[in-house]
Design a protein around this nucleic acid. Structure first.
Lengths: 186, 186
DNA sequence: TAAGAGTATTCCGAATCGGACTATTCCAAC
DNA sequence: GTTGGAATAGTCCGATTCGGAATACTCTTA
């Protein structure tokens, strides 16, 4: 059983978010919360306060980040964290691995950190998600067609419309992003 | 401090999903999992197996559902649950309360169970969510305008596009649903 | 005849959230 | 002037939720 491969999936999502944010420079937990809420929040997810601190502890123990205490007079003391080469490698492996992009949120985190991924590998992952969404869309369209919309299943039908709208939005976004990424490649 | 009011928010989301599914008729935990995955799954959420069983236990203790053991020969024995009048009341109160619709998922659950809500109250909740989404959209459009798209923030910009696409989808869906609901009202 | 899917549920660890709590400092309003 | 609120920097806790493993039996299919 290959242990190295298992290790690549060993960390929860929040860890990779934290590592990713730390590639922008060292920061305290408090700083990271702000970074996350400013930028990552575009995609309707950001790790919670307590979780970020928990992950920083775990990452420090694992040697993925270093911790440095900073004493302050006017403000509470704090600890500044910086990503280590090991941490960067672990992040890299995860970012490049297409197997790990199992949800829209994860894909968006990867896109957010897109400068750390070779463009063609990022595009491949987006394209894969796009195709998945396309399949879902087809399924939903099938259901819509079978459905006369005014039967007893009226309210479930209305939620199906939500699925259709959002799946459509995902495909549209993916196409847009792929186009823009391919442009910058040339 | 009014205790009755606190009670209306006392249950987690999965409980209301379970109660809602039980209004379609009594069922075992196993049945509920299938119901959930078939219908509710349109909106990219469904409670997990273990959670459904946990909530059934909690609801039984609280008197919101009744439990009945059924012995089977060819299949494993099972327990069938049915919603009680108290359970129906608790569900009603939650469905009608606009304060509880704090996420898209929750709103979709309420729409899914729309036959249990007076149309105008459902419409009001959808309209509220629509307006929230509209505000978010304006914010995102503002950010997009300020953003020349090709600066150093290219990748965050791409995730902003996702936010724009999905917020747009939400608004479009809400308009569509409100229109359909208003039609049926006349 | 062995493998796999369906029925029906339990158990457990891990991930995650959100709110309460501490403690200090700065700024603004009344 | 002082009182209140936001910002700084974190800890701690309970509750929610997920997902996978385990159990155990039956039916179908290759």
């Amino acid at each position: 059983m290959p242990r190295q491969e298992l290790k690549t999936v060993a960390l929860p999502l929040t860890s990779y978010a934290v590592l990713g944010l730390l590639t922008q420079g060292e920061a305290s937990g408090y700083d990271l919360i702000k970074r996350a809420q400013q930028c990552i929040a575009y995609f309707f997810w950001s790790p919670s306060r307590s979780q970020i601190y928990a992950e920083l502890g775990r990452l420090e123990v694992g040697g993925y980040v270093t911790e440095r205490a900073v004493e302050q007079e006017r403000r509470p003391d704090k600890r500044i964290y910086a990503i280590t080469p090991t941490g960067e490698q672990v992040l890299q492996v995860w970012l490049i691995d297409p197997q790990t992009a199992t949800s829209h949120t994860i894909l968006l985190l990867k896109v957010f950190l897109g400068n750390l991924i070779p463009p063609e590998l990022l595009i491949a992952q987006i394209r894969w998600a796009r195709d998945q969404a396309q399949a879902t869309l087809a399924e939903f369209q099938q259901l819509e067609a079978e459905h006369p919309s005014k039967t007893d299943d009226f309210f479930p039908y209305l939620t199906l419309l939500s699925g259709l709208a959002h799946t459509g939005a995902t495909i549209q976004w993916a196409d847009q992003v792929i186009a823009q990424l391919e442009q910058t490649q040339e």
